[in-house]
């Protein structure tokens, strides 16, 4: 008979495709892996508000301003579900934010690149959210229940984001020469970093094997990346955007696109903290978090004061 609290029982539940819930037994490394991954995911949503927020006040129409505001709100909301889902693993929001500030917890590398022109808002929606969706669709079937349910909600909203991003790109490609140049410039800068979002090649990915065994991760980095490439290249061609890679070739036999070599040196450099915006993004988060300290303290003081008063009247 299996002990309910044994690793082998845990693994057999995973193998049967059962969800693991917050109160269920789980090996310590499974919990750690999830906290690392979910907090990275939550922080990515929150840090991702910065490059997009950079364009709200300059959005070129009232409609695009509203869409962008709504989209950024969605991202913040996703951060919130994910923080709450991570909290079910016994870690507090305060600890999660401390780990972000100390550099222990990461966020998606992609947000260490700058949003330089309006078409970047299109590219972020279409390419960055597009890449994120491929990953998140797969994560809807992840083994940890709270994470899986958060992903189901998030995926619904992300597919809307991707469409609005593509709409901006399509509109600009139909526009003036200046607009087309902006769109192509954004494509040139965001294409490769988007491909890097899936992480290193499977052969170089140290944590992949455990994550696959525990069914936290359902498909490998390279499988997911290929899905994104196959989906995105025809979309680019349809609106006349050139993918900045001379080696792209459709393999007729497999139906998959082959691409040139990803610059892993750049990837490693940005992960190590030397991307164009690593310092800026983290400094921004720390600055406003610290500036808000008096507000959080006041809210807490008010709550305690009134709790005490209520207790006294009882």
């Amino acid at each position: 008979m299996h002990n309910e609290h044994s690793d082998s029982n845990f693994q057999s539940r995973i193998d049967k495709g059962e969800h693991i819930e917050a109160r269920d037994y789980m090996p310590e490394n499974y919990r750690k892996h999830l906290i690392r991954q979910m907090s990275q995911h939550a922080h990515s949503e929150v840090i991702g508000m910065q490059p997009e927020g950079n364009w709200i006040t300059r959005a070129p129409s009232l409609r695009s301003k509203q869409i962008l505001l709504a989209k950024i709100q969605d991202e913040g909301g996703h951060g919130l579900y994910l923080y709450s889902a991570a909290e079910t693993l016994g870690i507090s929001r305060q600890e999660l934010i401390q780990s972000l500030h100390s550099g222990k917890a990461k966020y998606s590398n992609i947000f260490n690149y700058p949003a330089l022109n309006w078409a970047d808002i299109g590219a972020i929606g279409w390419l960055v959210d597009g890449a994120a969706i491929v990953n998140q669709v797969s994560l809807q079937r992840t083994s940890y229940g709270p994470y899986s349910r958060a992903m189901v909600r998030i995926c619904k909203e992300e597919s809307f984001h991707q469409r609005q991003g593509y709409e901006i790109m399509a509109k600009m490609m139909k526009g003036t020469k200046d607009q087309q140049a902006m769109a192509q410039d954004a494509m040139n800068r965001w294409w490769w970093p988007s491909l890097m979002m899936f992480g290193p090649h499977d052969t170089d990915s140290p944590r992949s094997s455990d994550a696959v065994k525990w069914r936290i991760k359902r498909e490998t980095n390279d499988e997911l990346r290929q899905k994104f490439i196959d989906k995105t290249i025809p979309q680019a061609e349809l609106i006349g955007l050139k993918v900045p890679d001379d080696k792209i070739k459709l393999d007729e036999k497999t139906g998959h696109y082959k691409i040139g070599e990803i610059n892993w040196e750049e990837f490693q450099r940005v992960v190590a903290g030397h991307g164009p915006c690593n310092k800026q993004r983290l400094d921004h988060h720390k600055l406003y978090f610290n500036q808000g300290a008096w507000v959080r303290e006041a809210a807490e003081a008010y709550k305690q004061k009134h709790l005490k008063q209520e207790m006294q009247t009882i």
């Binding site: 927020g53 509203q66 505001l69």
Partner: peptide, 22 residues
């Protein structure tokens, strides 16, 4: 209010302020 995006004291308040902006 839009200028405050990503600058609120905590994430719930960020959402509240951008919601009013919207």
């Amino acid at each position: 209010l839009s200028e405050l995006c990503s600058k609120a004291p905590f994430i719930e308040e960020d959402l509240a302020l951008t919601n009013i902006a919207l």
